[in-house]
Amino acid sequence: MTRSRASLLAEMLLLGGGCLALLFWIIPTQTSEGGFGLSPAFLPNILAAAILLLVLADGVLRLTARRPESAYPAGFGALARSLAVAGFGAIVLAYAGVAASAALTPAAGMLALGERRPLPVLATSALLGGAFWLVFR
């Protein structure tokens, strides 16, 4: 599988658009004049512009090189599952505290990774929950 030109173009447009949004919308609305010295927006603007240039240069070089590059990996299953587990851990932390999160998050993670044997799941859960309960209760 090789990387398609359309995907390179899309990547360039997306990141370039992000930089433009930063330069013309986010940075102006999210900074105010400092009153003296270098403007607070000075460095953010320069950095956003530099990223824009690099992204364009990178995209143009790749588009003109016509060298086949291997395709990016596809699919977001791993990302979705991992974030779901971490998010679950954060919610448990909010409502039941550190020790509960230390016990339940690994269990949830193991289940999400397809571990179904009760013993390893429960043992990990009990061990970590206990350890964090001892330290942070």
């Binding site: 999160s101 993670g109 397809g114």
Partner: peptide, 14 residues
């Protein structure tokens, strides 16, 4: 890995 990954995830959150 099925144990390491969940445990590290928890450590990151906590």
């Amino acid at each position: 890995a099925a144990v390491i990954i969940p445990v590290v995830t928890m450590l990151c959150v906590v």
